[in-house]
Design a protein around this nucleic acid. Structure first.
Lengths: 135, 135
DNA sequence: CGGTATCCAACAGGATACTG
DNA sequence: CAGTATCCTGTTGGATACCG
């Protein structure tokens, strides 16, 4: 009763705390494939095969798993049309659209700052090697 | 010559492509601990021990590794004061501050949408169980 | 086409012990 | 205090095969 654990602006949620539910949400969002799937769906509905081709390097398993996680979290809607061959379309829910701006921003930031990062990494690696042989 | 691979606003970088360097940057940023470390450092400099206490549940190993990755990428500055006992202070570089708003936004979004996510997940799990026993 | 199931290698990441 | 080193386990994630 003596230590109310640091209530915040929103209902007491704090992702810095290990057992706070928001930590799990953060864990869901901070994922490469989640970011790319949401980014890909932002312009509109896509089929499974379209997504697989768009997300270069994704395996069927990872794409399925990512889409299930997002569907379960209510960020993505899955529509099945029982035609032959089967047709499955994925789209963002309102909640998914709500976070899509953020996901897109991260991807765009990554694309825009490649050179900054690479330059810094090369400098770091060079310096690490040099201080072993000062002369 | 017929298919220039979709140049974008910035210099042709496209995180949807497997071998694009921006994919690696995206991989660095989409990480729970990265998000929390950058968020923790946003208000100002912190010592290693302070960070460890702030990021509830982080192990020494993961925190060290995360800080090294961020330092190497040029997002975090590491200052060592050779006193006894040693004092090491971490702070955001300008580049780190540049991305910190984004990282913070993700964490805050996670904290603000816990209920939406949990409600959706419970509905999903309930529905999955029901369709095995319709009657 | 859009999955599911299975196997397996690799790596992430936790616990512990030790060091300048 | 701020690490590094080592060990070990669990999960990630790739490859492959099969199904409705």
């Amino acid at each position: 009763m003596h230590t109310v654990p640091d209530l915040r602006a929103h209902g007491g949620a704090d992702a810095f705390l290990r057992n706070c539910a928001s930590r799990a949400v953060l864990d869901l969002l901070t994922n490469k494939w989640v970011c790319l799937v949401v980014g890909a769906l932002r312009p509109g509905t896509m089929r499974f095969g379209e997504l697989r081709r768009r997300l270069d390097g994704v395996t069927q398993k990872m794409l399925t798993q990512t889409l299930r996680d997002l569907e379960r979290a209510g960020l993505v809607h899955r529509a099945v049309y029982p035609s032959v061959p089967p047709r499955v379309e994925y789209s963002l829910t309102p909640l998914g659209q709500n976070v899509a701006g953020l996901m897109d921003a991260i991807r765009v930031w990554s694309e825009e700052h490649i050179d900054d990062i690479r330059t810094a990494q090369e400098a770091y690696d060079t310096k690490a090697g040099e201080e072993l042989q000062p002369v």
